[in-house]
Write a protein that binds this DNA or RNA. Structure first.
Length: 301
DNA sequence: GACAGTCAAGTAGGA
DNA sequence: TCCTACTTGACTGTC
């Protein structure tokens, strides 16, 4: 049976705290920044403790952990210096419990944007994400995942621009960045082409692939994406979800389809992957997934 | 305390 | 042309 870590994104709904607290730009002050980051880190500690207690060893940290981190307004605020001890402690906890971390910047990161200012702010945002993982003391197997961003009227050119700009990213960003297939801008085949050109690992999303593919099964697609991960990248990460039948194609389900997940894990067989459950009810689904993994004898690395 | 309007940022697709 | 969705609702002024 396969070795699998399972996790959920950003929010633990069972705990009465959020690690994504923010404020309005107009309310910005150093004091507000310090208070918000302090509270966010305290919550993150609670969430990580809860996760390890429940054997959920994969977690996506919110991009809002440090609000306005890449915005000029916080340019003079040294969050890495002020919270160096806190961040190092959290990172040590992550390493001690062998937790895998991912980050998923928002839709405003458009590396191939025709707008120079959007390109510049996208790079700044990616640098923040890489710096956060660096400040936690985590190695390059902890990833930052992005989508292509847009086609801008010429899909082929959009990919070329993306590849060129990826290659020009600062090394600490490039070594952590992975690209995820979606049903709109970049199919798995598109992502694999980018990998062939510039070496970026491909994070496989099961739901997006089930909507847009070239006729290959989820397992076949997963294998092709997994082959793009080098040892230094760690186990391939996979985003898992099923369709919410009541909403548009691509909308994530509200609850885990346990039977579907069981079938998915069975078909993994010998494959070792880290599975991020993109299910709306977060940790509740992750707990159900753990039960399934235990039932099937999947090993927790 | 409840509510509604709004919030740093981009893009594409559908109504 | 406007609205919605996306990794995610949360913040804030008003009553």
């Amino acid at each position: 049976m396969s070795a699998v870590k399972v996790g959920y994104p950003a929010v633990n709904q069972a705990l009465a705290c959020r690690s994504s607290g923010t404020f309005r730009l107009a309310s910005y002050s150093e004091q507000r920044m310090t208070e918000t980051i302090t509270a966010n880190l305290a919550c993150l500690r609670r969430v990580l403790a809860w996760n390890t207690e429940h054997r959920l060893l994969f977690f996506r940290i919110t991009s809002d952990l440090v609000p306005f981190a890449s915005h000029p307004v916080s340019g003079g605020y040294d969050w890495r210096g002020r919270f160096a001890g806190e961040l190092a402690d959290i990172g040590a906890y992550v390493r001690a419990h062998d937790v895998r971390i991912s980050l998923h910047p928002g839709q405003f990161v458009v590396l191939n944007s025709p707008s120079e200012s959007t390109y510049a702010s996208s790079v700044a945002e990616l640098v923040y994400h890489a710096e956060l993982l660096d400040a936690l003391g985590l190695d390059p197997s902890h990833k930052v995942q992005v989508h292509l961003g847009g086609r801008h009227g010429d899909a082929e050119r959009g990919m070329q621009v993306w590849a060129r700009r990826y290659a020009a990213l600062p090394e600490p960003v490039r070594e952590r960045l992975v690209i995820e297939n979606d049903e709109r801008d970049a199919s798995l085949a598109d992502c694999l082409r980018l990998h062939a050109e510039v070496g970026v690992p491909v994070l496989f999303d099961t739901l997006h692939h089930s909507i847009r593919n070239d006729g290959e099964t989820v397992l076949k697609g997963l294998d092709r994406a997994a082959a793009t991960w080098r040892p230094v990248d760690g186990m391939p990460m996979v985003d898992y979800s099923t369709q919410d039948p009541a909403r548009r194609p691509g909308a994530h389900a509200v609850t885990l389809d346990v039977e579907h997940f069981r079938s998915f894990v069975r078909r993994l067989r010998h494959r070792d992957v880290d599975v991020m459950l993109e299910i709306k009810n977060k940790e509740a689904s992750a707990l159900q997934a753990r039960v399934v993994l235990d039932e099937l004898g999947a090993v927790q690395r």
